[in-house]
Design a binder for these strands. Sequence first.
DNA 1: TAAGGTATAATGAACGATAATAGAGAATGC
DNA 2: GCATTCTCTATTATCGTTCATTATACCTTA
Lengths: 332, 332
Amino acid sequence: MVTIKDIAKLANVSHTTVSRALNNSPLIKEPTRRKILDIASQLNYTPNYNAKSLVMQKSHTIGLFLTSISNGTSASFLADTIKGVNSVISQEYNLFIRGIDDYQDYSSINSQRFDGIILMSQSVRDHSFIYHVLQKEIPLVVLNREIEEDDIINILSNDTEGSRQAVQHLIDCGHTDIAVIEGIPTFKSTQMRKDGYLTALIDNGISIHPEYSVSGNYDMESGYLGMEKLLSLKKPPTAVFCSNDDMAIGAMNAVFANGLNVPNDISIIGFDDIGFAQYTTPKLTTVKRPVEKISVLGAEKILSLVTGEEQKASKVFAKTELIIRDSVKKKG
Amino acid sequence: MVTIKDIAKLANVSHTTVSRALNNSPLIKEPTRRKILDIASQLNYTPNYNAKSLVMQKSHTIGLFLTSISNGTSASFLADTIKGVNSVISQEYNLFIRGIDDYQDYSSINSQRFDGIILMSQSVRDHSFIYHVLQKEIPLVVLNREIEEDDIINILSNDTEGSRQAVQHLIDCGHTDIAVIEGIPTFKSTQMRKDGYLTALIDNGISIHPEYSVSGNYDMESGYLGMEKLLSLKKPPTAVFCSNDDMAIGAMNAVFANGLNVPNDISIIGFDDIGFAQYTTPKLTTVKRPVEKISVLGAEKILSLVTGEEQKASKVFAKTELIIRDSVKKKG
DNA sequence: TAAGGTATAATGAACGATAATAGAGAATGC
DNA sequence: GCATTCTCTATTATCGTTCATTATACCTTA
């Protein structure tokens, strides 16, 4: 492997001069610089990032962490996150990806190894991780889940408002017996979407029936089971807000399995707008959550943090959007 | 940040002794070793991987490359790949993820930066990348796409056989007018699945109609368009083999949009067995492709390669599996 | 012409680890 | 009892960079 010393020898200069020439230092005369650059490219020189990192105390890697990679994270969420970050992080950085739950302890996560960390957070369980990163003084951006501390850069989608709009849409269509299938209990998103559901009901003076709230865990199977539970009530709801699209799809299947029809017997609305939402039968009315956009914003933030541009701690909200398709019926 | 020298000072030994103690060298007496380890854990010592890498010529990072992260790679494929690899690569390794198409040139991909590379390959375009990695003498495992060179470790799913079985299943159900919606032309998988389709027809003495082969690009939209084209033929097929599930879902929608029924008017079979396949209406009959298993096998291979265990170049085939659900109808 | 400036380049010391070699002290042999 | 071997630890070099300091050559200027 060719090093700056090899180049130095050939150029008849010191290795320092080579280093400076390669780093565009003004201390080097143009002709020498040219000569050195020529030789470097002829020898096909590539800098040794380990040596560079060692002396500069910079790792050239950005860590993208998720609450989990294998558990409870849907394929489209994972894919959108990675796509968003990947599109922004330039080639000179290493893009490192892991799930927090892959770690027994966080000792290997330090500022030597990471210039900055993006956390796509889905659970309060992440708090110990956040605390660790903060304590190690690694630049951090937290996506998707609101963190109360105010010296944190936080990029969020407004799930509460999004789900409020969704349920308001059901109400606008004449529904009053509206149920919710909830997500994984420990996830903040679960709480926010439930809040939006409740807000819409309260705003419209609709009384809240506890039996219309059933639990789920964001996968299709749990949507199926949740809907079965709702259908077995003495008075089943006429519309169901599912906390994500996967569960909405499961729920639709449960409706069909019971010989009923969506949206004629039961209206269903989802949350996320995954790619499949427009290919279900009927097409799924849902709330588009801007996962990829959040990731892009987060990656941009971490880059400017890492390259030293001052960044105020801040909360950025990316907007959700109600996507009306065919799974909700106007009553009366 | 605490270094071995700090530990050495406190333990009244040389830094070399500390290094040896931490690396379980037999040259260190047990009592000294204990003392050093105690101090190290008290100081919360974590090794500097950059320094380590520099002297040991080892990067402690495994690169997971895909043909592309943003173009033509489905969410479930990307997610399954990452899940599989992530579950195997131990915590002491960095897991680096990128798309090949993110690179203008491969100069930054060298043995200093990567101990080993896993390539989830989807296109012949990857060849220049493979050539580069081979030339840099970086341990390499290629997944998903067969590479002719025989000194390469290659882990594949047998798509040809899988799609042959799929089409054979259609034939067994009494279909003879069988069409195919193909994938992205440059992808090897497209060719293999087409081959399986053709093989099944030929094996059964069914004549091949060129108008029954329509092109697609693996996304749902193209499945929709492909099916529309087929439906507009004078004599539409009674069954369609879609080269992946996404297109199958698009195709089903096209059938519905034309007022027809699946499977009563048209039978549809897919390929991949993505999570949604069992939640479509009707549930999709398809061929399960073991993406995650391939990734696991690949990750295991690269690890044993990297840790120095001899590995013969080899081709490993992971089996596909026909999953029969409700989108194919028995004729007659 | 000597003293002082000002560019430009060279020297040598880091960074934090490992590895080859040297050295000190105890155990062994004759 | 002294040389020799054997254990264990210390010394020093090294990996490929950057950076602070020092040196050299070339101009100014008095």
